[in-house]
Amino acid sequence: MSLSIQQLLENRGITAKSEHLELLQTRWESMQSLRSNLEGIAIDDADIAVRNIPGGDHIEN
């Protein structure tokens, strides 16, 4: 049985406003769905990183 986002947050001592819980629950379920698609995939194929490079938003030709 999986925990709800509310239970996970409460276990960490975080209290979310009730109006935010529905949005958080939807996002949590989406992340869990994406994570489940990684079962059986080599970790090197699933390694994704997001980097912030200051000033890196320009296009180089």
Rank of each mutant, 00 (worst) to 15 (best):
R35I: 11
T15R: 07
S36Q: 14
D57S: 11
D47W: 06
P54A: 08
L3I: 08
A16Y: 00
A16P: 00
S36Y: 10
S30I: 15
N37E: 08
P54F: 04
S30L: 15
V50P: 05
T15L: 01
I14S: 02
W28N: 06
R12K: 01
I5C: 00
I48Y: 05
L21C: 00
K17V: 06
I59L: 11
S36L: 04
A49E: 11
T15G: 00
K17E: 07
G13D: 02
N37H: 10
D47L: 15
T15D: 00
E60C: 09
S36N: 14
S4V: 02
A42D: 14
E29Q: 14
S2G: 07
I41Y: 10
I14F: 01
L24E: 03
I53H: 08
E29H: 09
T26S: 13
I14N: 02
N61W: 04
Q6W: 01
I41A: 12
T26K: 12
L38I: 12
R35M: 14
E39H: 12
K17C: 04
A16H: 02
R27D: 04
E19T: 06
R27W: 06
N37K: 09
L24Q: 07
I41Q: 15
S2D: 10
I14L: 10
S18H: 09
G56N: 08
E29R: 09
W28I: 05
D57F: 07
E60L: 13
E19I: 03
Q7D: 06
N61G: 10
S33A: 15
A42E: 14
I14V: 08
R27L: 07
